[in-house]
Design a binder for these strands. Structure first.
Lengths: 231, 231
DNA sequence: ACAAAAGTGTTAGCCGTACACCCATGT
DNA sequence: ACATGGGTGTACGGCTAACACTTTTGT
């Protein structure tokens, strides 16, 4: 039958967070040394159990708050993974979320305590269970988002240069955007505001800082870069 | 704490299917009169409980098989909905799936039994709980897919004219594609095979039937229509 | 003066859109 | 012959990619 009556599940329910940060011109993901059996000591995404009175998203926020000290993290649901044998410890259904954070703002305390580490996306270790697959899908999702929206508001410091933004995009898509063309394209979107201040650390001439306009709504509907982007 | 030990959930777990079909030049969705409390008798998506040893996808397949008589339905995970108060009958986490079926092939038997009905996407009734929102997201997801992949293999009969395919796209995006341009674009993808047979029912001249090439892999990476598509 | 990054300008080619035009045929 | 949908050809405009070129300033 399809709908008999309501019948409680015997499943475990969890969330897993793919935490993205940007540091030293590299897009990185925060991974944890697992602290419970099975597969204790191996690398994994960070997750947590969904409580009875929580939505999956609230649950992910709670986990992120606990781990990074940050509230108001940008979250995007990626996908739900539910193969009954995906976790050898039991039948666990997990909802995966992408989280974009400013790597400089987060607290290091708990991260160190749990032996967590930031990995550049090009140097990811092997992960437990199906976390490799989850990560791959999560990165594709991030690329899709970056195609339709100018991302960086959460990942970059509040003021940044166009070059920094370009480096972020270079790293996300693993290609080299033309500096001139990238600049023109991005500025044509009219979502950035130029500041009077310059960053003098990267060149003699100095590069103007920009910031995202406060009222920028990410309702973009057309691809920012119409060609060439491999998702 | 994040990961204490494994702890079973007290949640209800379900899947909901957004079943798309194409008939009389209209994209339609199959909706059901709800047969259990609460909200009995109102329109809803069709769903079912996820069994212990099933993945969400397997569960959706089981539901679809039961309702339509079809196996091997094309499925795409849409999103998971988990607000604890979304269903007044209890805290239900549901994984939503888009299902694309050939409306002519499915069995009507059970559909009639449950008072189900096909609704054109422009004439949807009000649905229970958060099913309106689910549907809206599901349609957006379908549009996104149709942007990157040429859809129609599941929705259209095995042989169809370019005009039929164009009508499908017209209906999905609620716009009128230019007949000539649509034709050229679609044929340039080289995923269709022209048959020797013509459909004489729509015009005096007749229109050649096409079918999807068997080995067509839907790995398209670039948008089919780079502009104008409102998702 | 030179190097090196920041930033601007120019051009060629591709692609989508609009639309004119031909084709085939039942009435 | 003509109306109708099928199908082809063409021309314009916008966008992108490539790359030349100018600007600024620390060394």
């Amino acid at each position: 039958m399809i709908y008999d009556q309501y019948d409680k599940s015997k499943r475990y329910l969890s969330v897993d967070c793919i935490i993205f940060g940007y540091e030293q011109e590299q897009l990185k993901i925060l991974l944890f040394k697992r602290i419970i059996e099975p597969a204790i000591g191996e690398w994994s995404l960070i997750g947590g159990w969904i409580k009875e009175d929580e939505s999956a998203e609230q649950s992910a926020r709670r986990v992120l708050q606990f781990i990074t000290g940050l509230s108001d993290v940008y979250l995007e649901q990626v996908q739900t993974f539910s193969k009954p044998d995906r976790d050898p410890g039991g039948s666990v259904l997990t909802v995966a979320f992408n989280a974009l954070i400013n790597i400089e703002e987060h607290s290091n305390q708990l991260i160190e305590k749990y032996g967590a580490k930031w990995f550049p996306i090009s140097e990811l270790p092997n992960l437990i269970f199906d976390h490799n697959e989850m990560l791959e899908i999560a990165i594709k999702k991030l690329r899709l988002k970056a195609t339709y929206n100018l991302i960086g508001r959460q990942l970059l410091p509040s003021k940044f240069t166009i070059t920094q933004l370009r480096n972020l995009y270079n790293d996300i898509f693993q290609k080299s955007f033309d500096p001139g063309n990238f600049r023109k394209k991005v500025l044509s979107l009219k979502v950035l505001k130029q500041l009077d201040e310059k960053d003098m650390s990267e060149s003699k001439k100095g590069a103007y800082y920009f910031k995202f306009k406060d009222d920028f709504e990410s309702n973009t509907v057309e691809p920012i870069f119409k060609n060439t982007l491999k998702l």
